[in-house]
């Protein structure tokens, strides 16, 4: 009787064990791919980003050390590969792009009065929190700030719906042009979104792990 009970218990937990082993293998495979890509980037004298869309975080690294960690609150994904890949940033664009201030030779326009002056510089607060990052291989990441009130929540929801509704058109358009296309919409805390815009510039490399990365879907 006891033997039968033990057998039933073992058999009932067996599928859980198999599934756990498959998950562990999958995770090992993903880590392997991620580290292979990171090793090639960390070997060069440069900073690079890792967009871990599954873990909802963006990490700025150099030589394997973490320089900065940024949070992602929400991820929406449209199409794209389901593996981990390395992509170069081609362009970043914003509706309200921060403009560099021009210094007037010999000018004193910053001075307000004795001992007081207004600083005319480009700082983190001047960076946009709504923008778009265009990577190679047709990867487009749009960034939105986390809503902080009813109106911005409404805007955010409306934007997300329109974003989803318009994606099929972009997919077909790019298909007709024979170009790859995948889009992601990230919602980040405002400060983190601005910090990402500040630190990420054209030509930098990024490793992107998509939310449903499944490199061993048919394995294990």
């Amino acid at each position: 009787m006891i033997t039968q009970l033990v057998l039933v218990l073992i058999l009932s937990f067996l599928p859980v064990g198999i599934s756990g082993a498959a998950d562990h293998y999958k995770s090992l495979k993903e880590d392997n791919r991620l580290m292979e890509l990171e090793l090639s980037l960390a070997s060069q004298p440069q900073v690079y980003f890792i967009f871990d869309l599954r873990e909802r975080q963006v990490t700025l690294k150099s030589r394997g050390i973490v320089l900065k960690g940024l949070k992602i609150r929400k991820v929406e994904v449209w199409g794209g590969p389901d593996t981990i890949g390395e992509y170069r940033l081609l362009r970043k664009s914003a509706l309200k792009k921060p403009g560099r201030k021009e210094v007037r030779p010999g000018g004193k326009e910053g001075e307000l009065g004795e001992g007081e002056f207004e600083l005319e510089t480009l700082e983190l607060k001047d960076m946009p929190s709504r923008y778009r990052l265009d990577f190679e291989k047709g990867i487009v990441i749009s960034v939105l700030p986390e809503p902080d009130g009813f109106i911005s929540e409404l805007y955010h929801t409306g934007f997300t719906i329109l974003w989803y509704l318009s994606r099929p058109f972009f997919t077909i358009w790019n298909y007709l042009l024979n170009k790859p296309y995948a889009a992601m919409l990230l919602t980040m805390p405002g400060e983190d979104a601005r910090a990402l815009y500040w630190s990420f510039y054209e030509g930098l490399e990024a490793i992107i792990r998509f939310p449903y990365s499944d490199p061993v879907s048919d394995a294990a």
């Binding site: 449209w78 199409g79 593996t83 509704l165 994606r167 099929p168 972009f170 490199p215 048919d218 394995a219």
Partner: peptide, 20 residues
């Protein structure tokens, strides 16, 4: 168009799977 775009995005998603 919506349905075609959705289908195409999904098919790209499954095409790139690795089985190594």
């Amino acid at each position: 168009v919506e349905a075609a775009g959705f289908y195409m995005a999904r098919s790209v998603h499954s095409r790139d799977r690795e089985v190594v």
